[in-house]
Nucleic acid binder design. Structure first.
Length: 269
DNA sequence: AAGAGCCCCAACCGCCGTAAT
DNA sequence: GATTACGGCGGTTGGGGCTCT
């Protein structure tokens, strides 16, 4: 990559300061807040014409008073031409719930399974719609299990609640699931639950999205309503004959290995 | 009609792993 | 090996719009 545009004018390539890299943005003169249509146009035109190789250089070269990070977010969450806009379909919503049950708050991983959707969008959707929906149905959105079953011996003592508020659920973290501290550690987590489970390891890696339709069909009931099992507090692999479902997924992915789904239907820790 | 409260979502913040020097 | 920036991630927030009273 010689003489690339993103080096910017006056850049020597081997940065001037010697050790390390230059700061992302100098904070001074950097605009924040909502993007104007003009800024959007500048960013779109620039990226469509040049692509983006170094986000730090994008605002400067595109004539924007933004930091590179802000440009990247604006592009990936809003301006990207392949983005789907609008509400999630019922199927997409089911997928979000299912993947959340397995992955926890790993929004980027979940988003990767839903083409045209962003992690931010899914995160927002989860916090505003799905979480409430599940609560309304008596499902703990954190553990994906019925609230009244929290008191059962298989649930950890800290999750024994029958009527908890949203806030309580939030502060509770990902009890009975993947610890929140793992949320930022896909690689680490993969050694925990993705390392031995082909499906999970497939999800951890940036592999081609699993054949989602098959995934749901395989785990669907007669109505094709897998959502029903999810909201009933059972995950697809907990259903009668669910092992076939997972085995089929494994076949689809040409993966083999040991399943790592616990007796409760959640990845082993 | 108007004020209060709630909802939604775009954007920011801070952290982390990785890469560059 | 130490230092520093980049890119990416998840959590949080602020404000506009909507609904309720």
């Amino acid at each position: 990559m010689q003489d690339v545009w993103w080096m910017g004018e006056g850049s020597s390539g081997a940065f001037d300061e010697g050790m390390g890299r230059r700061p992302c943005c100098d904070k001074l003169g950097v605009k924040k807040g909502p993007w104007s249509a003009e800024e959007d146009n500048k960013l779109i035109n620039f990226i469509l014409a040049n692509g983006h190789c170094c986000w730090r250089a994008v605002p400067k070269l595109a004539g924007l008073l933004r930091c590179g990070k802000s440009c990247r977010l604006r592009w990936t969450n809003y301006l990207r031409p392949d983005l789907k806009r609008g509400l999630l379909s019922e199927e997409e919503e089911r997928l979000v719930i299912d993947f959340h049950a397995r992955l926890g708050n790993r929004w980027s991983k979940i988003a990767a399974m839903l083409p045209g959707r962003t992690d931010n969008e899914i995160k927002n959707l989860w916090n505003t719609h799905i979480k409430k929906k599940l609560l309304k149905m008596g499902i703990d959105p954190v553990t994906h299990r019925p609230l009244h079953r929290q008191a059962s011996p298989e649930a950890s003592p800290s999750t024994v609640t029958t009527d908890k508020s949203d806030d309580q659920l939030q502060s509770q973290g990902n009890e009975g699931q993947i610890p929140s501290s793992d949320n930022r550690r896909p690689a680490e987590a993969s050694s925990i639950d993705g390392g031995t489970d082909p499906l999970m390891s497939c999800l951890w890696e940036d592999s081609t999205p699993v054949l989602l339709d098959e995934l749901w069909q395989l785990s669907s009931d007669d109505d094709g309503n897998n959502y029903g099992s999810v909201i009933a507090g059972r995950m697809p692999w907990e259903e009668e004959g669910s092992s076939e479902w997972l085995l089929d997924i494994q076949d689809l992915e040409n993966l083999d290995g040991e399943r790592s789904i616990s007796a409760q239907g959640y990845p082993r820790r």
